[in-house]
Design a protein around this nucleic acid. Sequence first.
RNA 1: GGGAAUGUAGCUCAGUUGGUUAGAGCAGGCCGCUCAUAACGGUCUGGUCGUAGGUUCGAGUCCUACCAUUCCCA
Length: 579
Amino acid sequence: MIDKNKRILISSALPYVNGLPHLGHLIGCLLSSDVFARFMRLRGFDVMYVGGVDFHGSPAELGAIKEGKNVEDYCNDYAKKHKEIYDGFLLSFDCFGSTHSKENQELVYEAFEGLEKNGFIFEKTLKQVFSKADNMFLADRYIEGTCPYCGYEKARGDQCENCTKLLDPSDLLNPVSAISGSSDLEITDTKHLFLQLQDLQPELEKWLKDKENNSDNNLTWDKQTYGIAKKWVSEGLKERCITRDLKWGFVVPRDGYENKVFYVWFDAPFGYLSIVKEKNPARFDDFWKKPDETLYFQFMGKDNVPFHAVFFPSVLIGAGDKYKKVDVIKSFSFLNYEGGKFSKSAGRGVFAEDALKELPCDYWRYWLLCNTPESDDVNFSFAKFASDINKDLNDILGNFILRVLKFYNKKYGDVISEIPAESIKNVFNEYNHIIEKTSKLIESYTNNFENLKYRKAMEDLRAIWVIGNEFIDYAAPWVLDKTDSIKTQAILIFAMNLIRIYAVLLSPVCPTFAKKILDIFGIDFNPISNKQTIKWVDYENMIDEMSVISFGQKLNIPDSMFNKISDEQVELWKEKFKA
RNA sequence: GGGAAUGUAGCUCAGUUGGUUAGAGCAGGCCGCUCAUAACGGUCUGGUCGUAGGUUCGAGUCCUACCAUUCCCA
């Protein structure tokens, strides 16, 4: 169990500014982190959930040129789109920003100075291709030409896509700029700064050691994440370039580097710190400067692990080790789309903005959480999506809620009538096993959630819902009603208390669905606010938890809970999103 | 080419430190129920655990090689 006194810092990997997310990105860092943040808030933790957008790097600069825009405007426009999508998916960031801020620049400069002072920075001259027509140095992959091995004419300067051979730009025959098509290229010497990662390796290894098998099991990294980190270390860290010949970014504060900026991998992770510093400066020190009082969880796709597990911690250590380093990295595999990959350019796949046009976000949130790619890549298919939504949400949960409430309403009206307290107590005794079973599963659900085992947690949740149907089938109020109306009511009140608990348990995953259920009982819950009006279920005190809904309670019974997805709809979607 | 991860029922996945007849959900068969969006509950069927070797009294679980998929690096 996580120490109740710790503050909880959570960050979701910062997506690249001109890459709008698809369903895989959503589950791979955004949703998974949001759900965890919501869960921890409900349990009473002091949570700081950070998100944002990564502005720097050459794709943004080139994208802006292509659209004839100023780079900063271009980034801000995209950032706005990101934010709209995240709001649409109800991501509950406490702080949201970008890597392009004065706060971030300060932190990056401070780290750079620290690294330099501690002797981890050195200069090296490289040969790089300069394009006069574009007036910029070109990254290897922005140079195209004929592959000297296979003759493919569109080979890139780093690799030939046709024969997969690795290339150096100077290998290419007839090289041209991929940006302007200009062949007026020249190879020039250019100086760059490098980080001596190898010198930081001993300290990094010391830090990494307890991540494989922490005495506190909650803090042990999963196999894949630790494996990736270990692989880098066991191969031996190498020097890594931290500067680039670009205009867009933080200018390197050093004589002779006026035309160079820091490499995006170097400045982007400082965004996690700077976004808090910018948006909520009063809490910056609490979360970032008191490592023993805070637990820090990072969420990301598996491709992002080396930066978070190896490079960034090394940078922090080398710069003087002044800030909180990550405790748990939760990394995710990828979501595939109907057997292939998501592809924006080919229009294949459901992108976040499209998803929201088709269904409210909680349907997507639910499915993605149930099918989180935790150990291996996972395939999204509309057929599976529809089947999971229909079975779990409609048939198991939604149906349970409606059969209880509609039956009560039909027989006894829409306000819970008072019955002898004795009858309630009797039902508690008779169905104590239902309470105990539910309590055990909630404990398991809570632990799995805390350990970030999402698939297992969702299995628990589903199993908890099944108990409700099991109970009502066995108790059969529609039969009992003919002989014992008082007991029937007691049973239905018991079931309504289960429903309330189900809503609380569902709320981190599907906030609007939880609200819809809690609205039945007039319980105040705001899916958007980070201020909690409800609490997590105390599974050790089930009698109280099962006594919340009681006499005099007005019931606002909806006609339906969730919508089913028809086979026809599945076919339409497959067509529309090129499955 | 090197490394990391994954490969378990038709589908989606669990399988803790190696130990009795390999688990769950979905799909399919059957029984029960009729309060509920024909929704629920129970039950059954279904796997030579990627392939080939090896260690062991005993391996899905450890070792070796190979194959396939994914990611990272070169």
